[in-house]
Simulated scan of single mutants.
Amino acid sequence: QNQIRVIEEFKVSKKSKCGIITFVSKFEEFADQAETIFKGSERRADLDKAYSKLIKAVNDTIERVAIEHQKTPRDVVMFENFHHMFATLSRLKITHLENEKREAKQKYQDHLQAYVTAFLGKPLEKLSNFFEGIEARVAQGVKEEEVGYQLAFSKQELRKVIKEYTAKEVKKGIDSLYKKVEKNLCEEENLLQVVWHSMQDEFICQYKYFESMIARCYPGANIVLEFTINDVLQFFSDIAQSHY
């Protein structure tokens, strides 16, 4: 009850980024002690019930902190802290808490993906907008291979947009993205590489979408982007290593 009260009264710091919230680390210490003290005890069932209440308070308050925190994006607060809860519950191997462990893992994965999608956004925005325009025309009934005959979507227009995204420009954009991500994440949970790898996958997904749209709508036009997937992999890898 005391633990739950402390958790529910937790005040959000306005000064620093969030990181692992104190009551999440405290839960880990508490569970370690409780497991040592009650190992093989007939009070085991009571302890398991108490854990369930405690974890509910932890989860609810992580969600509140994520909304209230001003220095760290909501999804980062969620995925870092639920990752910590998942790691703790995996290590403790408490049979009664399998559902809580699954829930923590799911929340960690969902919010990691949401952060990557929102934060990466459309790194090649003009290309994204160009192809979204094409998709809108196709939805109105224009055939894919005939879109290029419309002035706004001619080969010349596409080449003009592609020219804006040289390898050098793209690398600069990815580098600035890394610095922002690094500012959001905390060191103790050590998820920067995981997030960075997901960003790379998402970026390559967008790249492949552009390639397939060019192949479908401009067959035989010999139009390619100014950088390759291998370049993208190299940029992501070089930037991560230069910040170690």
Rank of each mutant, 00 (worst) to 15 (best):
G220A: 12
Y244E: 10
H197R: 14
E63R: 13
I162Y: 00
R44P: 00
V24I: 06
L177K: 12
A57M: 00
P219T: 09
T36P: 04
K143G: 08
G173T: 10
K93D: 15
G133Y: 09
P73R: 12
A31H: 01
V170H: 09
G40F: 10
K71H: 07
H83T: 13
K179D: 14
F82D: 03
L185W: 04
C18T: 05
N222G: 11
L225V: 03
Y178S: 10
Q140C: 05
E187Y: 11
T36E: 15
F119A: 15
E8W: 01
Q3F: 14
K168R: 10
L127M: 12
K163M: 05
E182S: 13
L192P: 01
W196G: 03
Q1L: 08
E187K: 15
F130Y: 09
V116W: 03
R43I: 05
L233H: 13
S154C: 08
K93L: 07
T36G: 10
F236M: 02
R74L: 09
K168Q: 12
A57C: 00
R216D: 14
Q234T: 11
E144N: 11
E125H: 11
E100C: 01
S212E: 15
E188H: 04
N99D: 14
L92N: 07
A87W: 07
L185A: 02
I162M: 03
T88S: 12
K11M: 13
